[in-house]
Simulated scan of single mutants.
Amino acid sequence: MLGKTINEINIGDSASFQKTISETDVYLFAGITGDINPAHLNDVEAKKTIFGERIAHGMLTASLISAVLGVQLPGPGTIYLGQDLKFKAPVKFGDTIKATVKVIEIIKEKNIIKLDTTCTNQEGKVVVEGLAIVMPPKERV
């Protein structure tokens, strides 16, 4: 895998990654992060929430954006500098989430790119949206 340098990236370039979120994914994420909120892990308690069932962690969903940035665009060697996020809808167990990034600004003198970031479910509904700021590799990694 080779990461793209700033000279190989253009406004409008995009990439995506898709994954079906399983119960196992949610439990593993809870164990890694320590976020054991019952909305994610306890069916009885989750039924009392506005969602009426267990849902995936918002940050688990948003982490799929990192997969796109670190593996595809710009790819290996990318440094993640920042991310603004808006959580628009819950992600349920079994939802297939597509994380997409699109280059919207290139600041060559600082070796920085800005990307629109969006996660949609299998119905095309936006569940997460935001803006990422990254530094692509200075040379091919």
Rank of each mutant, 00 (worst) to 15 (best):
54 R>P: 01
38 P>D: 07
136 P>R: 05
138 K>D: 01
16 S>T: 07
130 G>I: 01
9 I>E: 11
50 I>Y: 11
138 K>S: 12
81 L>W: 03
52 G>T: 06
121 N>D: 13
69 L>M: 14
1 M>G: 15
95 D>P: 04
66 S>M: 07
57 H>Q: 14
72 Q>D: 12
111 N>P: 10
1 M>R: 11
76 P>M: 00
122 Q>H: 09
29 F>Y: 15
48 K>C: 08
117 T>H: 03
13 D>G: 00
54 R>N: 11
49 T>S: 02
25 D>I: 07
5 T>P: 02
19 K>G: 07
26 V>G: 06
71 V>W: 02
35 D>M: 04
80 Y>E: 01
12 G>W: 15
109 E>Q: 13
97 I>V: 13
7 N>V: 03
6 I>L: 11
96 T>N: 13
91 V>H: 00
126 V>I: 15
42 N>R: 05
140 R>C: 08
87 F>M: 02
118 T>I: 15
69 L>W: 07
7 N>C: 11
131 L>K: 13
67 A>E: 12
138 K>Q: 11
102 K>E: 14
126 V>C: 09
13 D>W: 05
111 N>D: 14
105 E>H: 12
106 I>V: 14
63 S>N: 06
137 P>H: 12
72 Q>A: 11
80 Y>K: 03
5 T>I: 08
43 D>P: 08
33 T>Q: 04
3 G>F: 02
31 G>P: 10
66 S>L: 10
121 N>E: 02
95 D>E: 05
114 K>C: 10
79 I>A: 10
6 I>Q: 08
11 I>F: 13
7 N>P: 11
77 G>F: 11
5 T>Q: 04
21 I>Y: 02
56 A>F: 00
98 K>N: 14
103 V>E: 12
103 V>T: 14
2 L>S: 10
76 P>C: 09
78 T>H: 03
71 V>I: 13
81 L>C: 08
105 E>A: 14
76 P>W: 00
122 Q>Y: 10
21 I>N: 06
12 G>A: 10
5 T>W: 04
124 G>M: 08
95 D>R: 00
27 Y>H: 15
42 N>Y: 04
54 R>S: 09
